[in-house]
């Protein structure tokens, strides 16, 4: 009951902030539409246009006997897929930053901490208020992309690469773990920062691991498959445990009231 009240309060307040609302609505829209536009514009590809693709991609396309358009669509869609992981990272950090730092600046945390609500309830309430919209936005835009892609792919082989187990495992397993990481990071950052925008900007650093994977994939250093995705999920699980432990340690009544600056 208290957790529900807290989530309700967070959403009521944080979504009155236009910047947060803009982030939560715009990101999923951009990340769903951009890859579809990219698919729509690569239906016709001359073989020469593939010369810029990394060697490993070109070799793979040759190996699988893909046409130029199939190869281009598969390569670009695989690269864009990682952007669906950005939403679970960016949306929670924005919501949690405005929620926690906002409460710090308006001094509304102390009256909240003075209620019989437990620290765990406050963390779970604030966490879920950030996680639920992020997951909803991530999954919704992914679903929109999967449905839309059906109309723009040049063949079933390209669609199979998009709706592959790799990305389904990623969205079901890795994305929620990324949101937890993001919430933990937001709490840690919020404990040291007094400006929601500064917290949000620092929080944006959470996208670095995904960007590293993105770049690694483009240059053929990282090959994403179900196994590597499960390994990534395992690593995130350990990182999340550490991050949430640190966040829970910082989010104690006495620490908030006497040490948070």
């Amino acid at each position: 009951m208290r957790i529900r009240t807290l989530i309700d309060k967070e959403w009521n307040e944080v979504f009155k902030n236009k910047l947060v609302l803009f982030t939560v609505l715009l990101l999923p829209l951009v990340f769903a539409v951009l890859p579809l536009v990219q698919l729509a514009t690569t239906r016709q590809v001359n073989p020469g246009e593939l010369s810029d693709a990394p060697g490993n991609i070109a070799r793979l396309c040759d190996l699988q006997g893909l046409t130029s358009a199939e190869c281009m669509q598969t390569f670009l869609s695989q690269s864009f897929m990682l952007f669906f992981f950005l939403m679970p990272l960016m949306i929670p950090v924005t919501i949690a930053s405005y929620s926690i730092v906002g409460e710090k600046t308006t001094r509304s945390l102390e009256p909240l901490l003075a209620t019989p609500t437990t620290t765990a309830e406050i963390i779970v309430g604030k966490g879920l208020a950030a996680v639920i919209p992020a997951m909803a936005a991530g999954w919704l835009s992914f679903a929109v992309y999967l449905i839309g892609a059906r109309f723009f792919v040049v063949s079933d082989r390209v669609y199979a690469a998009i709706a592959s187990p790799v990305w389904l495992v990623g969205m079901v397993l890795v994305a929620p773990l990324l949101t937890l990481f993001s919430v933990g990071a937001a709490i840690v950052i919020s404990s040291r920062v007094n400006d929601p925008r500064a917290a949000e900007q620092l929080g944006a650093l959470v996208i670095l691991p995904v960007l590293a994977v993105f770049i690694g994939q483009i240059f053929g250093v990282i090959a994403l498959n179900v196994t590597s995705m499960i390994v990534f999920a395992g690593v995130m699980l350990v990182v999340d445990a550490g991050m949430l432990y640190l966040a829970a340690k910082l989010f104690q009544r006495e620490t908030i009231l006497t040490r948070w600056r």
Partner: peptide
């Protein structure tokens, strides 16, 4: 905490929410 009321040095209200909503949240938390 359930048996006391506290008026902190700063009012610390949720500025974007209505007066009624502010109190409703606390009524539910208590």
């Amino acid at each position: 905490r359930a048996s006391i009321g506290i008026l902190t040095e700063q009012p610390g209200m949720y500025d974007r929410l209505s007066a009624q909503k502010n109190l409703m949240i606390y009524a539910r938390l208590y």
